[in-house]
Structures are given as structure tokens and as C-alpha cells.
Design a binder for these strands. Structure first.
Lengths: 189, 189
DNA sequence: CTAAACTTTCAGAAAATACTGAAACTTCAA
DNA sequence: TTGAAGTTTCAGTATTTTCTGAAAGTTTAG
């Protein structure tokens, strides 16, 4: 795979950003390379394109697999593994967010949960306990919301995002229509 | 500030998570300490509580300021600076997300933007260009949505999150009611 | 102005993280 | 069963990031 300068810049950029996105430079570069390539690449292709060691490529492939961002393709009659991005940009983004939630939110949530459980009767200062509860509740809210969003159809989710804060307006309206009742009450046109 | 074991564990946890959240261990620990403390703390208090050097505390305070996560309080007749968390848990979270967006999304968006601008007539492979466009559009959508959300009243935003994917249902309904018209059309009960 | 009280800076040390390349391992065609 | 083709592992090295502590800087009471 021969890279033109623009493409190479973009790949280097993804490498730089990698660490901010939760993985390392090599993983970032390889993800970019595979996303921008229109055909699956072998580990040797990748090592050559990015001028990195074969071992490093192997590690990074493992990491990318563990994030479910790539998949392996095998040609019949060829022993080599070929790798490609595991879905559309939208799907890859979802995957990254999902994985980052697991690493950045879930551990703290479970720590807070057990702490708030265990310490019913102990000597935690009042304000600290209260703050922990707030963080806990916020993370829990976020988690449920995030789960819900992930299960929406992409086109609905996209429409919703495009609507932006407009959604607030719409909901206020419907709220005024049905101050405490079930959705069905809306459909009476 | 004397810390009981539970609190100390939580602070250590925030330190560990720090790097995943976009800052370093010391910054994470200090943020936790100030969030859980019910009174402002001096730099020396912090250094002592966390057993870290005074210089490190100074660096981390600068970082926390730059994220707008803390503010400085001065007692009249006391030369020391005292530091405290800059708002509620909700406000702090918003601040963290805002800052992370700046660091994790904006640079890539502007890189993509200039790349897609500049390369109208150049030799970028078609598939690569297309993928860049997709990433660009997704990040732009995300950015607008995020901005919009940040300008919503917290209680509205929270209500919206609690609604989760239920919002999709509600919107489908209203859509059926007013297939292309202005909001006012809803109010006709 | 002076100097005590306090804060920041920054060069070098320490710690954490990432990368290389050679050896070990696996797979499969013959 | 063998060995060529391919992949993974991991000890050692390189790089990056973070932390320390002493020196430089700042502020203010007297």
C-alpha cells in the first residue's frame, strides 16, 4: 500500500490523537490505515506502510480486535490474514464509544456502588458521601441513556441529533398536551 | 485534611482513572479531594493529604484551573490561596466533557475540514476521501448536537436523558401529527 | 524598601508506556 | 511427519510522561 502525502498526514494525525482516544499511536495509525484503505491489508503490508515492526503490528491488531474495530479476512488458498475495518464509520464510532464507556465509566460506577452500599453505618463525612451519591446517580443516568441510544436505529438517532435542542421544545409541547398520562393520549387526532 | 480509608480509596481510584479521563494521576486525585472536601484547601493541605510534592501540586492546580474545574478562594488577612471545586457535580461533568471535546474532537475536525477543502483536485484515492467525508460529517453532527445540549437547562437535559429512547417514540408520534409543518400545529387539542 | 510568606518554574530523576526484533509457537500443504 | 509460511510473545531498549525539590519569582505587611 503506497500512501500519498495527504493520506499519510491524516494517518499520522490519527496516530497523534490515538492516546487521547484511549489507545496508542500505532493502534491509531493502523485504524486510520484500515479505514482509508479500500482493500484488506496483511500484517506485512501494514508494517511496511507505517514503517513499524512486525511485532508491534501484531500487538496493535490484537488491540483493535479487542475493541471490535477490525475483522480478519482470509483468501482461500492464501495462508495470510488480511485485515479490514469492521463496519461503517458510524458503527466504528459506536464501537469506540461503547468500549470507552466500559473503560472510563463502568469501573468508577461499580466502585461508587460498592462504596455507597458498604458504608451505610461508617464514618464517611457527610459532604463526601453526598458528592459520591451525586456522581453515582449521574453516571447511572448516563449509562442508561447511553444504552438506550445504542439500541436506537441509526437513522432515528441521527435524526434526533440533528434536531438538537429542538427536541426540548417538542417535548415541552407534548408535555403540555399530556401532563402525566401515557403516550397513547397523544394519538387522538 | 485527614482522610479515612474509604475516602482515600476513592481518591486513589480517581487518580488511577485520571489518565483515562484526559489528565494525569495527580490531577485526578486532587480533583477528587477537592470535590469531596467540604471546605477549601490550601496547596500545602493538598500536598500533605496526598503525599506529593509542592511543585506537583502547583502544576496540577494550573491544569485544574485550565479545565475550569476549580476556583481560588482568599480569606481576608490570610496570604494563602484556598482551592475548591468550581460548581456542582453536574457542572463539573459538563466542563470535563466540553474540554475533552476540545481536545479529542476539534483538532481532528479541523484537520479533516482543511484536507477536504484543499484536495478538490488532487490525487486522494476515492474511498479514502469518502471515508474522510463521513468522519467529518459525523464529527460535525456531534459537535452541533453537543453545543445544543450544553445550552439546554440542566433539568430539561436530565429529563431528556431519563426519557432515553422513549424520545424516539414521542417524536414519531408528533411527526405523524405534523408531517412537515411548524410546531404550532401540535397545540390544536 | 525589605524580608517573610507564599507560589511557580524547570532541570533532572523516576516511572510508565510503547516499540523492536529475535525466538517460540502455530498451521497447513505435500 | 516435516518444514515453509505465517503469527505471537516477550525481554530488553527507547520514548514519553510525570514527579520532585531547589531556585527564581511574586506579593504584601510593616
Amino acid at each position: 500500500m503506497k500512501l500519498n502525502t495527504e493520506l499519510e498526514n491524516m494517518i499520522l494525525h490519527f496516530g497523534e490523537m490515538g492516546s487521547r482516544w484511549g489507545f496508542n499511536r500505532t493502534v491509531g495509525q493502523m485504524l486510520a490505515l484500515l479505514v482509508f484503505s479500500d482493500e484488506p491489508l496483511s500484517a506485512d503490508d501494514i508494517a511496511a506502510s507505517l514503517s513499524i515492526s512486525r511485532g508491534n503490528v501484531s500487538m496493535a491488531l490484537k488491540e483493535l480486535h479487542s475493541w471490535r474495530l477490525i475483522r480478519t479476512h482470509r483468501e482461500p488458498g492464501d495462508r495470510k490474514d488480511y485485515f479490514l475495518a469492521n463496519g461503517t464509520i458510524w458503527e466504528l464510532s459506536q464501537q469506540v464509544l461503547e468500549e470507552r464507556k466500559k473503560r472510563e465509566v463502568d469501573p468508577t460506577l461499580s466502585m461508587l456502588r460498592s462504596q455507597l452500599m458498604a458504608s451505610e453505618q461508617d464514618a464517611m463525612p457527610h459532604h463526601a458521601r453526598q458528592q459520591m451519591q451525586e456522581i453515582h446517580d449521574l453516571l447511572e443516568l448516563f449509562n442508561h441513556w447511553f444504552d438506550d441510544m445504542q439500541h436506537m436505529k441509526p437513522e432515528h438517532l441521527q435524526a434526533l441529533m440533528r434536531l438538537g435542542s429542538g427536541v426540548g421544545k417538542v417535548l415541552e409541547m407534548t408535555d403540555r398536551l399530556r401532563p402525566k398520562t401515557k403516550k397513547k393520549a397523544i394519538g387522538n387526532d
